[in-house]
Design a binder for these strands. Structure first.
Lengths: 120, 120
DNA sequence: ACGAACCGTAAGTCTGTACTTACCGACTCT
DNA sequence: AGAGTCGGTAAGTACAGACTTACGGTTCGT
């Protein structure tokens, strides 16, 4: 819980949660103020904030009876890291198959020339 | 449809879909081969691939009776762009409030010193 | 041309979850 | 201390969507 790309990803999947996230990106806000600008009830906002907090996307801070929420960079970074990892894997895979094809061509011209994807 | 951060985000929210995405990151694969390595049926994989394709996260290419899927950079970039936009907003907001606080301090020492978040 | 392989779609079921109302604790100010 | 404000939690409902089986269309090999 916290700095996990998968959790952050699924947290930002819900439209209402994205709306909350985008609203907090414009500046820190208290829960009630957040609920006023959204088409859902205050308890719903609380529940969403819980999910966003568990995903490391927001942090909360007490201010009297209010709780002020703001965006947390950790969750954002976690998603970035996840995507970079995946895309890096894909790039390495592309390079590998390219090298394999080049080596194949050097030896002998292939006859049963199937396409180049993984075979178990 | 295609290069939208929100769609790509919610597409990668499902665990099975993430598994498919991660599997394709290791290299392009056909649908049946993909289904063998996953705990769900082949039609389920087809439906997930449809969602991933609509989100711009994968592309498909016919190869005889098979369809080979591979990762598409556009969806990944869309998510990156969305997150960067949000975090950029947050940074600008931080800077604004910091400047406002500095100006406030220069004029007169604040008395009713409430915390600095947005008031409607 | 016929059978086989591969894949997408249709229809139906069932679980997860987003939402509501109701309730209760924490903090503030007079 | 008591009234008022703010916010998290509980319980219950309703809808989205993930999965299955069954079916049909397309392409390849013999």
């Amino acid at each position: 819980m916290g700095t996990n790309g998968a959790d952050a990803l699924s947290a930002l999947a819900d439209p209402t949660r994205r709306a909350i996230f985008e609203c907090l990106a414009r500046g820190p806000k208290a829960v009630g103020l957040l609920a006023e600008q959204l088409p859902v009830s205050r308890p719903a906002v609380s529940q969403h904030l819980r999910v966003l907090k568990d995903a490391g996307l927001v942090t909360d801070q007490a201010d009297g009876t209010r709780r002020v929420y703001r965006i947390d960079r950790r969750g954002v970074d976690a998603i970035h890291a996840y995507l970079d990892q995946m895309w890096g894997r894909a790039l390495r895979s592309f390079q590998e198959t390219a090298e394999r094809l080049a080596a194949q061509e050097q030896n002998g011209p292939p006859e049963g020339d199937r396409r180049e994807e993984e075979r178990p």
